[in-house]
Write a protein that binds this DNA or RNA. Structure first.
Lengths: 217, 217
DNA sequence: TCAAAATTGACTAATCTGGTCAATTGCAGT
DNA sequence: ACTGCAATTGACCAGATTAGTCAATTTTGA
């Protein structure tokens, strides 16, 4: 069930993009609660299609789930991981650009990262077997590239670069989490985008102050 | 359904503690997926009791859920929030003690904070109405007390204390998250407790270095 | 105009749902 | 040993939900 799926070659890809998007989105959202708790009835209702159509394209519930797994990875890699500018040697600047990319991803594919995270943390209860390995591989690849080619001389001498990078990443994650919850509509999201950016830039400025050597004056 | 429940006076409290613990634990875990996805059958199976007994004590599924909500708050407040030493004016030290308390809580009540968090983030789909208010009140109370009586003179002059405290909290949360996932058994957990502590103390040391003024030499 | 492709939704058999209740067990008091 | 009450059981219920099917219909493109 977990053999690699060629996303581009999948039946569903010849469907009208808008409708396909509705299906994928509804499915990603429903599977956030784990494979077993997801209902195909809910998915078709949310996507506004008939039951038969879903099974026409995906065969079984597992087929759908499996497709989503590969699809989500594909998007994640192509629209996020591959776009990071790994030649930027100032890691804080690099992370700043990552935040923007991630923001973009979250805007274009609202349920994608939630789905992947859920699939990973609940892997025991889902039917996929190769998935855990994939997830960790991608994760390891990302962190590997993230620590590569970093100009560590920018850090204060008494600061461990790895710890520092962790702190920054955890903080960014924590910050974005703190902004989610009450407002859910994409409208609100766009409105607050500006304040979001300036606020987070305040944190980046702070990271520079506390983690980097003082600029020569 | 959401009127305050006197936990101590509840029927279930006269039950043999070991059995009661099994029930509460199983229920907390099952409700992590939201009220509607939780199955009373799963709960009784996991707790090793009969269906009838559960409904004898709690009446309905909502009655059980409601009890758990108040129970979880009660434990959270009495065994965590109330025990924090708010007179410690060095906020980093205070947060360090909080980490230990939280660790303790997670050890004694493994499913409790997950349950509360889920109940909050999914409040739309659960049947409780007063809950969201309670959660936010407790949260606000905690953060309020957390920023109270803090010796801000310890911070570097160019560091905003609130941002700094956020960074520390997010980092602690991120760190503990990064340690969860693969190992789940309580055994592993206890084994790694030592390394966990020294590792996290490394981060506390770093926080001191980067956020506080240099100690007079 | 016609065949192929896309799409529908009523239908199924199986499982699962929250909840009930008569019957059984365990136990304290006599 | 007997009684009476509380604790506990699990078979049972009617209704909902499950993944999946398929004959029938609509849409499409040439």
């Amino acid at each position: 069930m977990s053999q690699p799926i060629d996303i581009e070659a999948h039946k569903i890809m010849s469907m009208e993009p808008e409708k396909r998007g509705r299906i994928i989105n509804a499915a990603l959202e429903e599977f956030r609660n784990g494979f077993h708790h997801a209902s195909t009835d809910h998915i078709v209702r949310e996507a506004g299609i008939s039951k038969g159509l879903l099974f026409h394209y995906f065969g079984t519930k597992e087929g759908l789930y499996s497709f989503l797994l590969w699809y989500a990875f594909d998007v994640m890699v192509k629209e996020y991981i591959d776009l990071i500018n790994y030649s930027e040697r100032d890691i804080i600047e690099r992370l700043r650009q990552m935040v923007l990319l991630k923001q973009d991803l979250a805007y274009k594919h609202p349920n994608l990262s939630d789905f992947l995270l859920a699939a990973y943390t609940r892997e025991r209860e889902d039917p996929s077997d190769q998935f855990s390995g994939m997830y960790q591989a991608v994760q390891a690849d990302l962190t590997g590239r993230l620590y590569e080619n970093v100009d560590r001389s920018l850090f204060r001498d008494d600061v461990d670069a790895e710890k520092a990078i962790n702190i920054i990443q955890w903080s960014l994650f924590g910050y974005s989490n703190s902004k989610i919850g009450k407002d859910k509509t994409i409208g609100d999201y766009q409105e607050e985008y500006g304040t979001y950016l300036t606020e987070i830039d305040g944190y980046f400025k702070l990271f520079r102050q506390i983690l980097y050597k003082e600029a020569a004056s």
